[in-house]
């Protein structure tokens, strides 16, 4: 029982990272109407931008955490940086395709090209050798029922909840967020209502970029930084988006949890090497039984 609960805890941590990334992915899909294959590599960019800043600042660990306060400005810079890169790519690549009336599949293939380019640039700058934010030992806390959780992992789960609440407030309580939802509903109607949809798209890229940067940093805090780490997260993030219902940020978060928990808990019964396949089995079942996902719109 304790082993199950412990795997559940680990699953929630993994699910938080996948969910954070999937929220940005699904938000962009809802408004931009294509599957962005460059999202995973933007995650890698976020983790390395934070690494570049963090290693130049005072990297002394804070309290029980493996990283110090300097990670806060490092993460903020990474969020802004990835957001700006994503918005710039939209201006130089996707906007041209949009104006030509290109199909979603053309945009998706273009994003695959962007993904390869971003990954190559990251490898060029930071090299192929894995690095870490910090090398210290992160001693786990003992929780009730004998569960153990590292302080870094607690930080990841808190960050996920804080950003989910922030995204909710943005989408439902601000003018920008409502315009984003309106543009997602019907871009042509948004245009004739006087909403500057190009600005809304730019804002969407910024927000999706910021979210994936946080996911990247959170992953990096508890793991190694590799030039292809984000790309490896791409499929689980897509699985989370589809499981939750395409275009629904809360669905993506829930989908992320399903992905994280199912793959960790499954190791009770199957070899660890096969655990990454489990979310895709669930995904296949979901597509057969309920193609619109957990929270997707009907029809």
């Amino acid at each position: 029982m304790t082993e199950f609960a412990q795997l559940l805890v680990v699953g929630v941590v993994v699910g938080s990272i996948v969910g954070l990334g999937a929220m940005g992915l699904t938000l962009a899909f809802g408004i931009l109407k294509f599957a962005n294959f460059a999202h995973g590599d933007m995650m890698t960019l976020g983790m390395f931008l934070a690494y570049a800043v963090y290693t130049r600042l005072d990297g002394t660990a804070m309290g029980p955490f493996s990283v110090g306060l300097a990670m806060v400005p490092a993460m903020l810079i990474a969020m802004a940086g990835v957001g700006l890169v994503a918005a710039s790519v939209d201006q130089t690549v996707y906007r041209r395709l949009r104006r030509r009336g290109s199909a979603s599949i053309t945009m998706a293939i273009a994003s695959l090209g962007v993904a390869i380019m971003v990954r190559a640039v990251i490898q060029l700058i930071w090299g192929p050798t894995p690095v870490r934010y910090a090398t210290g030992i992160n001693v786990a806390w003992t929780l009730p029922f004998g569960l153990r959780m590292r302080p870094d992992q607690v930080l990841i789960v808190i960050a996920m909840f804080a950003l989910a609440v922030g995204l909710y407030l943005l989408l439902f309580k601000t003018r920008l967020g409502k315009a984003m939802r309106a543009t997602s509903d019907n871009p042509a109607l948004a245009d004739i209502s006087g909403i500057d949809t190009e600005r809304i798209r730019a804002a969407t890229w910024m927000i999706a970029g910021a979210l994936i940067a946080v996911a990247g940093v959170m992953f990096g805090v508890q793991s190694q930084l590799k030039f292809d780490a984000g790309f490896e997260f791409l499929l689980p993030m897509f699985a989370a988006v589809i499981l939750g219902g395409v275009g629904n940020p809360w669905g993506a978060l829930a989908g992320g949890m399903v992905v994280g928990i199912s793959q960790e808990v499954s190791t009770l019964w199957i070899p660890t090497g096969y655990k990454t396949a489990v979310p895709f089995v669930l995904l296949t079942v979901m597509l057969i039984v309920r193609p619109r996902g957990l929270f997707g719109p009907k029809g």
Binding site: R175, K178, A179, R181, A182, S184, D185, N186, A188, L189, A190, S193, G194, I195, P297
Partner: peptide, 18 residues
């Protein structure tokens, strides 16, 4: 398709006054 279906009545009107 002349309204935003997932937005409330009030939000639809707010979008008209963006």
């Amino acid at each position: 398709e002349n309204v935003f279906p997932s937005l409330t009545i009030r939000e639809n009107l707010e979008m008209g006054a963006y």
